[in-house]
Amino acid sequence: MGLDFSVVPPFAGALFTGALWTIAITVSAAILSFFGGIVFAVIALYAPRIIRLPFRLFAWLFMGTPLLLQLFLIYFGLIQIGIDLPAFVAGVIGLGLHYTVYNSDIIQSGILAVDKGQYEGARTLGLSRMQTLRKIIVPQAVRSVIPPIGNNMIALLKDSALVSVIGVAELTLSSQMAISRTFRPFEFYVAAAACYYVINLGLEAGLRRIERRIQLAR
């Protein structure tokens, strides 16, 4: 049996909807993991021990265990303690927290790399520690780590395929559903791969734009 890509167009609508869900999950988890990463980084570096330790345990948990397992735990596990999350929300939380931990590591190194003179410059004007952190240190740290964070976001996009297993009809699950109707795995997986590639191009273009915009301000 040869390959026949003419089976794909009839499912274009379903794949397109799947792609939109992929984008929605990726963008939501990216936003969560970006701001979460900042909060985690600041806590890891500056919070008192009693707050730092539980966060470290949490970070270790999210770095040291498979993302797939984390998704199962959040979606299927939490129901047992009365937290019944919609699949989309569970997916965003799982992906978001997972990448929060990775982003936090990068942002921490960015914070530590900000020149000490910046801190002194702000403090001598009368800014408090917190004000200095918020207005001077973190904005500079984040700008300096946009490229590695961008790489994480591209990895996040690809990992978003994992939420298909908890039933979010994103791109991967949509193509699987088309396959179960047509028995044409090659054509639909290639089509899905092409969609991921296009989304990736868009993401990269967006990241390049952000990098260009902050280039002067470094």
Binding site: Q118, G126, I214
Partner: peptide, 26 residues
């Protein structure tokens, strides 16, 4: 001390060898 020193420092301007301008702000 934090509150005290932040208030005091508003009255003392300082200029550094390496400027310490904030590069992310115009």
């Amino acid at each position: 001390y934090e509150a005290h020193i932040n208030a005091v420092r508003q009255n003392i301007g300082m200029v550094f060898q390496h400027f310490n301008l904030f590069p992310h702000l115009n």
